[in-house]
Amino acid sequence: MTEVRTPVSSALLDTGRTEYLRAGTGAGLALAHGAGGDVELNFGPLIRSLAGHRQLVGTRYPGTGASDPAGDLDVAALADSLVAALVREGHERFPVAGASFGSAVALAAALRHPDRVTGLVLTVGFSEPDAQLRTVASVWAALDAAQDRAALGAYLISHLTHPQLLAELGENEHRAQAALLGHGLTGGGLRQITAATRVRLTERLGEIAVPTLVVVAGADRVVLPATSRLLGERIPGATVIEYPDAGHAFTEAEGTVWAQDVERFLDAHGV
């Protein structure tokens, strides 16, 4: 994603060392980022599009930013922290947008706090890990253990980069990007994707009782598109949008369309 130009501030929750970011003013929108991601990185297009009339608030998981690197990464704990951040900012009821692992956090928030969560946006999400996600996590762990940072960076680029952009990437540029990404990764990302492999929420999808938008990336190589589609099939009344050519991380153009679709959905349902 491109850099976020909207001013973003941060704060720490009173209980535990959890950092959360906030941008904009107005009705609240909770943001749950992906494993190895961050609030601004995963939600830049939404922040730029909605901060003029919504306050967007997202927690950083343990190991990201100033959040406690040894903190609890169970989705229940992450959901509780996210809800607490919104309440601290003065929002009693609000929708939750989750990206990838953050979609599981969003689902947990709706299940644990039905009195507060008014809607869900689940992008490239899952309710339990599929074989592809488990493989990504295991290879990440193996390359991290081997301290082969360049290979780890190259592996993640191959799975996160849009297919067309990956095809156009020259050898030298690919090598440079792989080294930069690999050496910039922290242990927090590995802990987070490992936590993602422990999610088990499929049997509870029928309990979701709020308007839900499911966004599927048809060329996703981290979470299989069929896995994301399952959310739309199992959540009562869910709306499904699919971007056939999109990968797990959206391009700037795809992110702009995604932000417009999310805003349209939130407005249509009054959440």
Score class of each variant (00 low, 15 high):
V139I: 15
F43M: 09
D144H: 14
L12E: 13
I241V: 15
H183R: 13
A176N: 05
R54Q: 04
R22V: 00
A268N: 13
T25L: 09
F126C: 03
D245K: 14
D144M: 04
S49C: 10
S67K: 09
G255N: 01
D74T: 13
A137D: 07
E203R: 03
A77C: 06
L185S: 07
W258M: 04
A99Y: 14
L111I: 13
E242T: 10
T6I: 04
V240S: 12
V199C: 10
L156A: 07
R264I: 05
P62S: 08
G153S: 05
A11G: 07
P69G: 12
D74H: 14
H113P: 05
R112E: 12
R112Y: 02
E263K: 06
F43Y: 07
L185I: 15
G52F: 03
R149V: 15
P129Q: 10
H91K: 07
D38I: 01
T123H: 11
E252N: 09
S67N: 11
G90R: 05
I157R: 15
T18N: 10
L231D: 00
D68P: 06
T197P: 12
F43H: 12
Q147D: 14
L224D: 09
S127G: 13
G182H: 08
A99I: 10
D144C: 06
E203S: 06
